[in-house]
């Protein structure tokens, strides 16, 4: 099967699924600097998309616009049929459907691991406490650190903290997970344990959008790779197509620098 055949097959298969994230001509400026320049993309249900690009290319800004940690200024973003506008109700709805994992983990240092995970289900999802605890423990089991439940984040290693952060995001039972360079702040020996959790998540059918520099992860797990530069989407394609036969000069240059 040739690369183009695979792409066609994937396109057909994807077309049958629902749209999860739709971006149309999204623009954003920071003062004079245009961070996002006409971003148009659709991410389907159960799709795993890896966003690549040099630093400062707007990857993080885009992903942060998707759950409105930053507000986009022009264009439209629609998540699971709900448009992201100034509407309070839409923002609430989208935030509880989109989980996010940060580069710096951003765990709450004054709460135990268990409380970190339980807090949002209790107060945002309004779950009873017992149920939330059960859920939290099962999630800790899933990310492989059930024994750390009573500790404080400061007592865990970076990899463990990032796994707790993933569990915290999953506790909201999101339909979409966003990862903003989840392994960049980790020591090399801890990267694998986090990537393993993410792979497991991908195979379970979660819609995922991942900003990362882990090419191995992109090759192995991604359904699609998006390459960005200067706030624009330069090239989109399956990993095979992207890594073996990139079309654009800028993509080739980028790949030659990092591979």
């Amino acid at each position: 099967m040739s690369v183009s055949d695979a792409t066609t097959a994937l396109t057909e298969e994807l077309a049958a699924r629902d749209d999860m994230i739709v971006c149309e001509g999204v623009n954003k400026w920071f003062g004079d600097f245009q961070a996002l320049d006409g971003i148009t993309a659709v991410i389907k249900e159960r799709e795993v998309v890896v966003v690549l690009g040099p630093s400062g290319s707007g990857k993080s800004t885009w992903i942060r616009c998707i759950n409105r940690l930053e507000a986009h200024q022009e264009g439209r973003i629609v998540i699971d049929g709900v448009e992201l506008t100034n509407d309070l109700r839409n923002i609430e709805k989208i935030r509880s459907e989109v989980g996010m994992v940060f580069q710096q983990f951003n765990l709450f240092p004054h709460l135990t691991v268990l409380d970190n995970i339980m807090l949002a289900p209790i107060w945002v999802r309004k779950k009873p406490k017992g149920e939330a605890e059960e859920l939290a423990r099962s999630l800790l089991e899933r990310v492989g650190i059930p024994e750390q439940a009573e500790k404080y984040p400061g007592q865990l290693s970076g990899g463990q903290q990032q796994r707790v952060a993933i569990a915290r995001a999953l506790a909201m039972e999101p339909r979409i997970m966003l990862f903003d360079e989840p392994t960049s702040a980790l020591d090399p020996e801890m990267i694998k344990e986090v990537l393993d959790v993410m792979k497991e998540l991908a195979t379970s059918g979660m819609t995922m959008m991942v900003v990362t520099h882990e090419m191995g992860f992109a090759r192995e797990v991604a359904d699609r790779v998006i390459f960005m530069e200067d706030g624009q989407i330069v090239e989109t394609g399956t990993p095979e197509h992207f890594f073996t036969n990139p079309q654009e000069e800028r993509t080739k240059l980028f790949l030659s620098q990092i591979l």
């Binding site: 739709v22 659709v42 439209r76 629609v78 506008t85 100034n86 509407d87 109700r89």
Partner: peptide, 24 residues
């Protein structure tokens, strides 16, 4: 993009949320 997507997009293309839900 399929037709149904266009339809959902159009449906969500509300001009403004009612004022009491508008963040600003």
């Amino acid at each position: 993009m399929s037709n149904t997507d266009q339809a959902t997009l159009a449906a969500t293309q509300s001009q403004r949320p009612p004022f009491y839900r508008d963040v600003t």
